Simulated assay, not measured.
Amino acid sequence: MINPLHTLYAVHLKIDQAAAITVGKLGHFHLKEGTYIYVGSAKKNIQARINRHLQLEKTIRWHFDYIRPFGSITKIITYEHTIGECLLAEKLRKQVGGVYPIKGFGSSDCRCFSHLIYLRKAQAPC
């Protein structure tokens, strides 16, 4: 059971083969192979949101849904809401030495560059 104070999550997605994708209105992108971390939030029922992200067959609703079929989820970590989704994304990016590969990904309701992080180095994500 997930702690009820946890409304933030980080999904670690491993992409084994580069792919060309279209992410809704954001446009066309090239995903490199490697590990990506997507930071999101669910104010209500985080377990349902996580379960949805684990599914491959679903209606596309969020940016993450566009890249999900191209990789395998290696882990999902939940966090307390106190830091906020934007600060968590930036904290994780710095912690893993990652970059933001797609402008606006997961951040259409804030001013962040992105909530998707790409790990440049072959390293174990946090």
Rank of each mutant, 00 (worst) to 15 (best):
L5T: 14
Y9V: 12
Q17Y: 04
G24E: 03
G27F: 08
G27T: 05
H28N: 13
L31F: 01
E33T: 03
T35S: 04
T35G: 04
Y38E: 02
V39I: 08
G40R: 00
S41C: 02
A42R: 01
K44I: 13
Q47W: 05
Q47I: 06
I50M: 00
N51D: 02
N51R: 02
R52M: 03
R52Q: 13
H53L: 07
L56Y: 06
T59G: 03
I60N: 00
R61M: 07
H63L: 13
H63C: 09
F64W: 02
I67W: 12
P69D: 10
P69S: 14
F70W: 07
G71L: 06
G71A: 11
S72I: 14
S72D: 11
I73R: 12
T74W: 00
Y79E: 15
E80Y: 05
I83A: 11
I83V: 15
L87W: 09
L88N: 14
A89P: 01
E90L: 02
K94G: 07
K94V: 15
V96S: 00
G97T: 10
G98V: 09
G98C: 15
V99G: 02
S108G: 05
S108C: 12
F113P: 05
F113M: 08
H115N: 15
L116C: 08
I117L: 14
L119M: 15
K121Y: 08
P125H: 08
P125D: 12
